[in-house]
Design a protein around this nucleic acid. Structure first.
Lengths: 154, 154
DNA sequence: TAGAACCTTGGAGTGCGCTCCAAGCAAGCG
DNA sequence: CGCTTGCTTGGAGCGCACTCCAAGGTTCTA
């Protein structure tokens, strides 16, 4: 007799490979602690994400407890990925707003994703530069270690 | 009549390509604002780095103003790279301490560098995963854009 | 039906990496 | 000489992304 509704407008669906341990759609009502187990986020963080508008409105049980759906988990997966890129939470909130505003924001969302993609490519490049520096330093230290070893063995 | 000393023990040198706009060694005494121009850091940040032990002791002019050397700039370059990896400042301070402690810390520095290298590889991998997600979403939005466009042209 | 485990809220607190402030000294210029 | 510009210090403040608290209601297991 409780929660059976789905949110309706599927306006940001392109899920990718299905996640492990999920219940089938229509039977997908997870408590906050289940979502904690899935995502590795804390319950505090999940509630905070909702407060700042980073999550859509989450279904509630008849007593007001949160019941997350598979769609919510998909969204959290995306948020997790974007977080890894260093995207500020405020930007993710902006993206969430665009999704809520409906289909006429497709263009803006598209731009935002493309910009983010460029940022990610740039970060990968930076990291490669850093890797080169580390490798130079590491081989320097390896050589120095060799020198000390042969020093010691003399 | 002022600052002409060099720090002595070259215990972490493996400079890589020489930087632009630098003065030759022995004539390398940069004011803090010159270093700001080189590094893009603020003077506040440079002084803060020194306070927390992330920098070696910086030479001073006869009136107590900081005079950075080429070696200091090299160190700041490394710090900048490490910062890009997301390494916490505290860990960089630890590395700086090891450098100050002398040659018997070679081994520990070597380990720290190798661990960092692994972290960087892992981060690059994460970013590649995110890139894949973004690309999927982007092509989804591109298709949706196409659909909307043909909708409009009908 | 008792008790443990879990959930709710608004608001306050934390840790990190800066970032800025006030008050004062020093150097160069007209 | 006064003025501007640049540097010094210790300590306070800030923005971000959580993280936690207190006080109370709910759900599950024995």
């Amino acid at each position: 007799m409780t929660v059976m509704e789905t949110t309706g407008t599927r306006t940001d669906t392109c899920a990718g490979p299905p996640q492990q341990n999920r219940r089938p759609d229509g039977d997908d009502h997870y408590t906050i602690s289940e979502v904690v187990a899935f995502t590795g986020l804390t319950a505090h963080t999940l509630r905070w994400y909702e407060r700042i508008g980073l999550m859509p409105h989450i279904d509630r049980s008849h007593t007001g407890q949160r019941r997350y759906t598979n769609r919510d988990l998909d969204w959290l997966d995306l948020v997790g990925k974007l977080r890894l890129t260093g995207m500020p939470v405020a930007d993710m909130v902006r993206y969430a707003e665009l999704v809520r505003e409906g289909d006429h924001t497709y263009g803006e969302r598209f731009q935002l994703l493309k910009t983010t993609r460029e940022d990610v490519l740039a970060r990968i490049d930076e990291l490669r530069g850093t890797l080169a520096v580390l490798d130079r330093k590491i081989s320097f230290y390896a050589d120095a270690g060799q020198a000390l070893a042969s020093e010691r063995s003399r």
